[in-house]
């Protein structure tokens, strides 16, 4: 993690009287000011703006007729929102857990002096370079029952094999998990591998001298050392989950029906295609709340660990 302490001393330009010197002293602030202004307006201002919109009865166009928290109340009574929110729970939970498990497993295996380790790493990680749209398009093709994996396995002679999650409203959300795990698990592997390489060998040697077997060493010594990595990975993955939009659009289109909607697609649909700007804004604010709920504990523990060295 980044360290704040450096050797930089705030050397202010000599308190010269000339305009040029004064300009020099202010130049850093001047250079930063457009970015600060942008941040204040486009990030903080827009968050406030969306919050204000969420308190109005805006439909097609923004209006500023305030209705208090009525949009949030409507959201709470909206069945489609609950489907989206529940889906986020299922999708996010499975996505995070499977990515962590698979990432850790692959990292540990790769850490055993494997031949061609670099090539394997490259293969595991390349999906992360793709757009979620490409991932969605490919997996939609793989998962379509007519010509995809189902047809392939049936062609091998397993006539009754069924894998039609893409068109099954009860299972469609799990197709999102498959595609998202495919895309992001290699990245988690890379995080864990970096963590493993950073562990001090002497701890492990000591455990070996004590006669502990390899699985036991991993379970009792190595994995606990990786706790910070687990923490960051959970943060990043849940962030990806909450923001997931493109994958849903490309893979399931939110369907069948709205069975695989996520909050991000719910927000977009209501704000941009169903002329429900107020309701869409309320859902965006709840998404922000979700991100803050994972971000604040993370930052808190980061700052604390920094203080404790």
């Amino acid at each position: 993690m980044s360290t704040v302490t450096t050797s930089t001393r705030p050397v202010d330009a000599a308190p010269g009287r000339t305009a040029a010197a004064r300009l020099q002293a202010w130049l850093p602030r001047l250079v930063l000011s457009p970015s600060i202004a942008i941040s204040l307006f486009f990030v903080y201002g827009f968050m406030l703006w969306t919050f204000i919109l969420s308190l109005t009865n805006s439909r097609m166009l923004p209006s500023y007729e305030f209705v208090g928290f009525a949009q949030y109340a409507r959201l709470m009574e909206n069945e489609r929102w609950w489907v989206a929110a529940t889906n986020l729970g299922i999708f996010g939970g499975l996505f995070v857990i499977i990515c962590l498990g698979l990432g850790l497993l692959l990292a540990i295996l790769l850490d055993q002096r494997i031949r061609q380790e670099g090539a394997l790493r490259t293969i595991y990680l390349y999906p992360m370079a793709l757009s979620f749209i490409v991932t969605g398009v490919v997996w939609k093709w793989l998962l379509n029952p007519g010509l995809g994996i189902q047809a392939m396995v049936r062609g091998w002679g397993f006539e009754s094999f069924t894998f039609d999650w893409l068109i099954d409203p009860k299972m469609s959300v799990y197709t999102l998990v498959i595609a998202a795990v495919w895309q992001a698990s290699g990245f988690v592997m890379a995080l864990f591998l970096a963590g493993l390489r950073g562990i001090d060998d002497s701890i492990i040697k000591a455990a070996q001298l004590d006669g502990a077997g390899l699985p036991r060493i991993y379970w009792r010594v190595v994995i606990p050392c990786l706790r910070p990595v687990v923490f960051s990975a959970v943060m990043i993955l849940s962030h990806i989950a909450i923001k997931s939009f493109d994958l849903v659009v490309a893979l399931t289109g939110g369907g069948p029906g709205y069975s695989s909607d996520l909050p991000a697609t719910f927000m977009y649909t209501h704000a941009f295609t169903r002329a429900q700007i107020g309701l869409g804004s309320a859902s965006a604010m709840l998404m922000l709340g979700g991100v803050l709920a994972i971000l604040i504990p993370y930052l808190y523990s980061e700052l604390r660990s920094r203080k404790h060295g």
């Binding site: 130049l27 977009y268 700007i277 604010m285």
Partner: peptide
């Protein structure tokens, strides 16, 4: 060229990495 409040400026800007973009779409 650190100045008083430069860490705060950094923290302020950093937050932009984390927001879900749905929250800025309409504005």
């Amino acid at each position: 060229w650190r100045f008083k409040g430069s860490e705060l400026v950094f923290a302020l800007m950093l937050f932009g990495c984390f927001i879900p973009f749905q929250v800025v779409l309409l504005p």
